[in-house]
Write a protein that binds this DNA or RNA. Structure first.
Lengths: 165, 165
DNA sequence: CTTTTTAGTTAAGCAGACTTAAATATATGC
DNA sequence: GCATATATTTAAGTCTGCTTAACTAAAAAG
């Protein structure tokens, strides 16, 4: 029981530090590009999950199709994404990152990683190995958590980085 | 060098999973309470750093005093915080969480922790010990990173959870 | 005391992210 | 083929968060 408590405290301490930092980093980056959070999130989606249609965006972000369309519109106007016609369904559009868009989000991702890279530099080789193993354990456990409930027919969760109220 | 790479990959994988989850959790919670992100962040500040005046809020969040005042206003109207007069300076106000406010953010924090608690349940005792140690290493290293640059007279960073563009 | 800072508020106005409602174009079902 | 359903856009209007500018009140400086 003490071990469980110890674990809880360790992870909470880490979460506090980590969230604090990465939120700040992210915010600063978004600010520097002039992108809003929803805009950035939308681009992240396209990056991680590939091209998709409007309706998929509106479902994932849990907003109306109208909202999705408008959000996309701004990104298109600013040259971050393109709205192409879906060859298999001429009603639908296929959203894709432009080169500018790709570059921007890659930069954003780098930004988010930069801090932990600095952090890595402050560890000894031995510590790095230890931490690395531990994180792999956590990542595996997390992936298990994600997939488990889905199998039991519970409603699966759709949105990804949807933080916008 | 391979060890460094291994570490980098482990932490990046973890970050992706972790950010994904905790952002979602946070967003859902904020939605359920009806609080916006800046409002929630402001309350987090009061929780973690205690009562403070308007000017401090406006500095930490990097917004004008007017914006801070208006933000606070809504929270006061909704009964989350109180604006008391500072006895030592009658121009200044002291912002404090109400019981309702305290309860709400404690719930929010719990929400954020819930997922990792579930995660902990999926680990063996041995794994928990291992992870716990690793996270402590990281937390210490992170704290070192925070304080180091300050000593060298570089501009210190003020804002905490300021994500709002 | 009077002047000047400092702390905070109020008002007017803008932009972003939503919403609903109505419109358009294409697929699909019978 | 025609009615209906689907994918998306446009328009109008709301709410939030922010900004600047003007204002009040109290503290500090002289």
């Amino acid at each position: 029981m003490t071990k469980a408590l110890q674990f809880t405290q360790s992870i909470r301490a880490w979460m506090d530090v980590f969230m604090h930092r990465s939120m700040r980093g992210w915010g600063l980056f978004a600010k520097s590009t002039g992108l809003s959070m929803p805009q950035f999130s939308l681009m992240m989606q396209l990056h991680y999950r590939g091209a998709c249609g409007m309706s998929e965006i509106s479902e994932r972000f849990e907003v109306t199709p109208a909202a999705a369309s408008q959000l996309v519109d701004k990104l298109v106007q600013n040259g971050y994404i393109v709205r192409e016609e879906d060859p298999s369904d001429r009603r639908a559009k296929l959203l894709n990152l432009t080169d500018k868009g790709k570059e921007t989000i890659l930069q954003g991702i780098e930004e988010r990683y930069r801090w932990v890279d600095q952090l890595a530099e402050r560890l000894t080789d031995e510590e790095r190995v230890q931490v690395s193993k531990a994180l792999d354990i956590m990542t595996r456990a997390a992936e298990g958590l994600e997939s488990k409930p889905a199998r039991q027919g519970q409603p699966s969760i759709k949105s990804t980085y949807s933080i916008h109220k």
